[in-house]
Computed example of a mutant assay.
Amino acid sequence: MNHRICFLTHNYRGLNSSGNKAKHDNEVTLREIGAVNLGVPTTYYDSKVASFFLDLAGVVKLSMTVSRGDIVVLQYPVKKYFAFVCNMAHAHGAKVVAIIHDLGSMRRRKLTVAKEIRRLMHADYVIASNATMKDWLSKNGFTNGLGALQLFDYRSASPCRERAARNSEAVPRVVYAGALSPRKNTFLLDMAKVAKGYDLEIFGNEDGLPGLKASEHVHLHDFMAADDFIANAPGDYGLVWDGDSLTTCSGHFGEYLRWNSPHKASFYLRAGLPLIVWRCSALASIVKELGVGILIDRIEDIGPRLSAITPDERATMAANALSVAQRLSTGAFFKDALKEAVDRIE
């Protein structure tokens, strides 16, 4: 990389959310490769007022410190200031690379597709979450440089333990971890009734999903700290599924799986858990390419699919998941995508 790589940090109001965790991990990677923070130092104040003024101060400082030839990496969405920062960088002779964490026109639908594409066009190069999102951006009018991340990295001090082979007669354990709420994972209420051929291990806020009950094959656990989960969580597979249906991923969150690479998938893989993902999701091609899990059309497919996996196939998936976990831990996916972006810009 011949040009100076730069970035703009901001105030983090906690690192428990997947979005903040992913962005913070990318900043760690940027610092590792020698990138320069053009804004104010990273802060962690919980106050909304403090966050607003600190982020504004960072944008103002960047406008005075960016230089000709710089490549500025922005983590999209950048609240309120994305177009301004891009224009300021261009005015100083710098280029902008934006890595997409979320698309407002897809997830929360607060933007029209056309408006989001116009906004993203302020960047010289965009790193989409995955190849499926990359194709979607291209088909919807994005014409600048375009690449794909595939998986968000997941940094943790915890070592990913190699999961010992289990007795072939042992019941497989499927893990679902995350914040529970009626708008996102109501499907768990029905899944708990039909789970057959496996045990379902749910980690999260049980009171967030009224009606969720433990049973013979459904075990409820409190939130486990991420580092502890990576090192110790019991389980054999991590489930990525959202919505209120057992036959398809539905609702805003479920439909969004068609296009994004959820941080939950990286979290499972970082813990060495092969994935169970919806066949229509953007993750499906990634899981198949990396050999780190199985694809299902509906929740009812889980039991039969797991029972058909041979010990050798399971061992191969576990080894592949462990290999991917090591890459996630070092920021390898972001490093590769950023190198491609910089090479294209140069």
Rank of each mutant, 00 (worst) to 15 (best):
K139F: 09
A123P: 03
E206V: 15
A214Y: 02
N140D: 06
A195L: 01
G147N: 14
N205D: 14
C160W: 06
T112K: 14
K134C: 01
K95T: 09
S168M: 11
W136H: 02
K110I: 09
F142A: 05
S181P: 03
P210N: 01
A83G: 01
K139L: 13
H90V: 12
L120D: 08
S105R: 09
V171F: 08
V126D: 07
D102H: 04
N167I: 10
G204R: 00
D199Q: 11
I127Y: 13
K196R: 08
Q150F: 10
F203Q: 10
L151M: 03
A89E: 06
R166V: 12
I99H: 09
S156I: 08
Y125P: 08
V97M: 13
S138K: 15
E169V: 11
A91K: 06
P172V: 03
R155K: 11
D190P: 11
S215M: 02
L103D: 06
Y176W: 13
P210Y: 03
C160H: 08
M191C: 15
S156Q: 10
C160Q: 11
L188S: 06
V174I: 03
M121D: 10
M88H: 14
R161N: 14
M133W: 01
V126C: 05
L137G: 03
H92P: 02
H92C: 15
K196N: 07
A170Y: 06
N87P: 01
Y198E: 12
K184D: 10
G178D: 06
F142N: 02
V85F: 11
D135I: 10
A94P: 04
H101A: 09
G104L: 02
M191I: 11
G178S: 00
A123F: 06
M121W: 07
G178W: 04
A83E: 06
A164I: 13
G141I: 06
R119E: 15
P182F: 08
G93V: 14
V174F: 06
R107G: 04
P159N: 14
A83K: 10
N130Q: 00
